[in-house]
């Protein structure tokens, strides 16, 4: 299970790097989504994989019985997903507004903050 997760994280990261190397900002954005998921999976996997053992406390007990899944990384990953979701939503809105104003999503053509003439200096 862990090997499979590691493979998935690797593939996600590789795909995200490929996408982020593109000139189109939209592709970069999708790469960012994939990288964000790869990071979340890394955190999730860091709690080790346990099968069918949720961290639940049976009625009348003080602590879970036996070996259960580590609940902390799951809490962390929830936080990270929510934060990542918010940031990506913002970035998408920013990209849309930038496209409306600049009429392009080609990062090579986005030279308004650093115009070409002093780019070569």
């Amino acid at each position: 299970m862990e090997a499979l997760t590691a493979l998935v994280i690797g593939v996600l990261t590789a795909a995200s790097v490929y996408l982020m190397l593109a000139r189109t900002f939209m592709r970069f954005l999708f790469g960012l989504v994939l990288l964000s998921n790869a990071a979340n999976l890394t955190i999730f996997a860091s709690g080790r994989m346990t099968k069918g053992a949720p961290a639940l406390v049976p009625y009348g007990e003080d602590a879970p019985l036996g070996v259960v899944g580590n609940a902390l990384p799951q809490a962390l990953v929830l936080t990270a997903i929510v934060i990542g979701f918010g940031l990506l939503a913002f970035t998408l809105a920013l990209a849309f507004e930038a496209y409306r104003r600049m009429q392009t999503v080609d990062t090579d053509a986005m030279r308004f903050a650093e115009p070409k003439e002093d780019a070569d200096t």
Partner: peptide
């Protein structure tokens, strides 16, 4: 907006590298 795109993009990547580091 142009400046914002570049700032946001690179900072988000760095955050994700940091986050993966935390996980590991």
């Amino acid at each position: 907006l142009d400046a914002g795109i570049k700032y946001v993009a690179l900072n988000l990547v760095s955050t994700l590298i940091f986050l993966s580091g935390i996980g590991l």
